[in-house]
Design a binder for these strands. Structure first.
Lengths: 338, 338
DNA sequence: GGCTGCTAGGAAAGCGCTTACCTATGCGAT
DNA sequence: ATCGCATAGGTAAGCGCTTTCCTAGCAGCC
């Protein structure tokens, strides 16, 4: 690997001059020398060693992102927003997948600190686990103490900048719409109960139903894995356990698709007999048949805002932005059958 | 940020000793000192500066990945394979999105070189553009000259390690199956013609059809954007231009979903009047109605193999692995109507 | 007891870069 | 002709770490 010294030698100048030319420093350099340096750079295919630069002038150019899983469409969209803003700021992005393992999240925060990243964006759901939350907060604080910036998305564990989707509002929207269409015997296909995302959405739904005079009994909520198979399983259980069920609320679109698959397999007409609604408005929601009624979260925007907070000027106090959820009505939701 | 010197001072030892304790160097250190160092590390929340470490002991721990777009399910799956292997090797991953912009790919290679990454994996499709290909090869060679490793996935621009999906075979499979079911008036919903992925798939399809005695006329191929909307547009054009069309081949699943949407909007029964097949077997293929017949590519495996080549022992010569494509038959493909 | 031979720990160099500081040159002013 | 000053360029320190090389101390031996 060619070094600055090599360039300087070849151009017949001092390393200082070479550095000044390459970085476009404010100090003026004679055209003749500048030329020679530039030619040497080209000849040697010189690229400055980013680590040495970082050591000499602590100006961080990389940001770290910790998500549950980039291959999950939810995080794929989110990540796209994060990336766009990071790129606009001229920052590279290190993406770490925690695969929903809290320990791994902790490890990654540590690793990113060692990498001296300019900022860490932690995306995903929080956990109902006080010990973990405390450890995470502690690690983030240690990182921030070194001048790093932190923003979280979709979780509120951190006493700094956060961007949140309106999960609870979304649950409410769904509940209100179901009631409006006459649904009262409603089953909920829920993801893991430890995730704050799940409980937030559920809280909203519960509140809307209770306000409408039809509180949700505990046995009408089934917790399962946050994916297609989990959705199918929970939907099956609810169908068996709740006679006269007219609607199924899945707490994300993957689970909703699983529920749809199960209903079709059992020959249950959707929405003729049972309506299905999802959450997130992932691309698949529009592609299935019947197209899924769901709650749209501005995922790209969520990511973009988080990165903007993380890379923008720091605030003296905690900032929490909540981005609104909107209802997207499609074919999978009909009136409750008589 | 606490430094090694801080730790050493607090423990009352030299930086050398502190370093030895922290890195578990082979040199023995008295238990008493070791203890003191460890305590100091914990007290100060010391994390070694990865850049300084890298400078002092050039042992790279980060790998770079350049993809078109992580939020595209194709790359999301691929990336998952890449990540898994990288993590198994204890490597962090920097993900760069080129958004299908060749210039940006070039830039990212440069940036990753500056970051002294251990390896660069370039994923996506190649371009039919000799100038670009040459520039890319040149940049990759410059990077390799510094001891970096390179592997490419889904493209063959690089004279080193490569992992390829059997795109041409996949096209053949599709063509053969269509003929077997009596389809001869076939339209092709193709992505951008500059992508080698497209032309490879098309070549296979063409070959199979020609061998079956039904060569594909050029006007039955429509090139459009590689996404849902492009698929809908191209499908519409073909429907208008080719009377008696019985099958639509989309060169990826997104386009196929777009075609499906258009056919439904026009009230064309699928597969009753027109069959539709896709390519890639992305998750959505199983979720749409009718479920999509498509070609499965082992995307996760593809990514995993590429990263394995990139991080494993170097070969003295170019290695190209081709991973097989398989046909997945679902409901969207039926016999040609009489 | 004096020597050798070992070991634990420290001093210091050096990784590639930036930049504060210094030197030498050339110009205009006196 | 002398002085001062601006300016272009070089010298060297230092970023945080690893590691080679060295020193001091000690046990074991004759």
């Amino acid at each position: 690997m060619a070094t600055l010294a090599d360039v300087a030698r070849r151009a017949g100048v001092s390393p200082a001059t070479a550095s000044r030319v390459i970085n476009g420093s404010s100090k003026p350099v004679a055209d003749e020398l500048r030329e020679r340096v530039l030619r040497a750079v080209a000849d040697l295919r010189y690229v400055p060693n980013a680590h040495a630069q970082l050591l000499a002038r602590p100006q961080r150019s990389v940001v770290g992102v910790v998500v549950h899983d980039v291959s999950d469409p939810y995080f794929a969209e989110l990540t796209r927003g994060l990336q766009r803003v990071a790129t606009d700021h001229g920052r590279l992005v290190i993406i770490c997948n925690s695969y929903r393992d809290p320990e791994r999240e902790l490890e990654y925060v540590e690793l990113l600190r060692a990498q001296q990243v300019a900022a860490i964006v932690l995306a995903g759901s929080g956990y109902h686990d006080a010990t973990f939350t405390a450890r995470l907060a502690e690690k983030l604080a240690a990182y921030e103490a070194t001048g790093g910036r932190v923003a979280v998305v979709g979780r509120h564990e951190h006493p700094g900048d956060a961007v949140m989707p309106a999960n609870t509002d979304g649950g409410r929207l769904l509940g209100a719409e179901l009631l409006r269409r006459g649904h009262t015997r409603i089953g909920v296909v829920a993801g893991p109960q430890v995730l704050t995302t799940i409980t937030d959405r559920l809280d909203g739904l519960r509140a809307a139903l209770a306000e409408g005079g039809h509180p949700l009994p505990a046995e009408r909520v089934r917790y399962a894995d946050f994916d297609r198979d989990g959705g199918a399983r929970a939907a099956g259980e609810l169908l068996d356990a709740v006679p006269g069920l007219t609607a199924l609320v899945a707490l994300n679109d993957s689970m909703a698709v699983g529920a749809l698959t199960l209903l079709r397999a059992r020959g249950v007409p959707v929405p003729g007999q049972v309506s299905v609604v999802g959450f997130d408005d992932m691309p698949v929601a529009a592609d299935v048949t019947p197209a899924l009624t769901t709650v749209r979260l501005p995922l790209v925007e969520l990511g973009a805002r988080a990165m903007t907070l993380a890379l923008g000027p720091p605030a003296d106090r905690s900032r929490v932005e909540v981005l609104p959820a909107t209802l997207v009505v499609r074919d999978s939701l009909g009136p409750a059958p008589a």
